[in-house]
């Protein structure tokens, strides 16, 4: 029996699933307890697991991630919430310089089984400092795994995989997706990190999208179908590990590639995907490798302006038409 639940409720279900299974899993962060999180994604967890395992912290992002890291290296499997992914900038040392490098520097003496979950991306009119899509920052640092689910089912399955993984995982919850719904079966759900999903089959162009851009890519595929263009849509799901095989196999079939990225253009994850395809599937290509991104600007707040710059269904359609023509 599948149940229709929101992406928001999927967060709670995912955390509860893992905390019930493993006593060493703890949740810490600003307002995660009584308040149930600023997006209400952790509401109810305090009641079930109590104030020791679901614990509020001061507004001290370095202290939050430091606590998670020190605990992970000594036997716990902490989940740390950073309320908005923009705030990762205040504790980037912990993420990029401490967590990412410690296993390597110690030649494997230290293991860091921890998850940083954070509300990422735009679409809620929060302006430039609460709307960034920053998954690329994490992707650029060796030693971090980077996951960004697009729907409730994947959120639960990938979150479970992240908690059970022995490496630090940055888990980006796209905040505009919290109210969106999807079908989720009963029982435990666990998926595998580093696995992309073909969410729509096609033959003329491969669209690779992530998180909030997946639904838009599917809508674009509907419109392209009306124009006689058959688009295959891949939900990338995680940036590290990257499922290069699924992308390459798809491009070998369609001979065309379009990436759809919420991040600003320069050094977005799509540039890595494009370069990979250029190197490994070049002789299969029949059209320009095309990227649809937010332009290289900070995000504006006004709804009209934000809608203007985030990749729209129309821009994805246009990108695909360019790639196939």
């Amino acid at each position: 029996m599948a149940e229709l639940i929101t992406y928001r409720d999927a967060v709670k279900r995912a955390i509860a699933q893992e905390m019930r299974r493993d006593d060493s899993v703890y949740l810490i962060g600003e307002d995660v307890g009584d308040a149930g999180g600023v997006f209400k994604a952790t509401k109810g967890l305090l009641d079930e697991f109590g104030p020791v395992r679901v614990r509020d912290t001061p507004i001290s992002e370095e202290a939050i991630l430091g606590a998670a890291m020190g605990a992970a290296m000594t036997g716990l499997r902490p989940i740390a919430e950073i309320m908005f992914s923009d705030f990762l900038a205040t504790c980037w040392d912990l993420v990029a310089v401490e967590m990412a490098k410690t296993r390597y520097m110690t030649d494997g003496q230290v293991t860091l089984p921890l998850v940083i979950r954070t509300a990422n991306g735009g679409g809620l009119r929060f302006g430039a400092q609460h709307s960034q899509a920053v998954e690329n920052w994490a992707m650029a640092v060796p030693g971090l795994k980077v996951v960004a689910p697009s729907n409730p089912h994947d959120l639960i399955g990938l979150f479970a995989a992240a908690v059970r993984d022995d490496d630090p995982v940055l888990f980006f919850e796209q905040k505009s997706l919290y109210p969106t719904k999807g079908h989720v079966e009963e029982g435990e759900i666990v998926e595998e990190l580093g696995t992309a999903k073909i969410v729509r089959s096609g033959t003329d162009v491969t669209i690779v999208a992530l998180a909030s851009m997946v639904r838009r890519a599917e809508q674009a595929a509907d419109e392209l179908a009306e124009q006689g263009i058959s688009a295959e849509v891949i939900d990338l799901r995680s940036l590290v590990p990257l499922d290069a095989t699924t992308i390459i196999e798809s491009v070998v079939k369609t001979s065309r590639l379009v990436t759809v990225e919420e991040n600003p253009r320069l050094c977005g994850w799509g540039s890595e995907v494009v370069s990979l395809v250029a190197e490994e599937a070049f002789w299969h290509l029949d059209g320009p490798l095309t990227r649809v991104t937010t332009p290289h600007i900070p995000l504006p707040s006004a709804d009209a302006l934000e809608d203007e710059v985030l990749p729209s269904v129309q821009r994805i359609v246009d990108g695909c038409v360019k790639a196939v023509s």
């Binding site: 703890y26 370095e62 020190g70 605990a71 290296m73 000594t74 040392d93 912990l94 310089v97 401490e98």
Partner: peptide, 18 residues
């Protein structure tokens, strides 16, 4: 990195206490 390990040390202390 100056100061970073102080917050990390807290985590080890928290874990030991748990």
């Amino acid at each position: 990195i100056i100061g970073a390990h102080l917050v990390i040390a807290n985590g080890a202390a928290w874990s030991a206490s748990e």
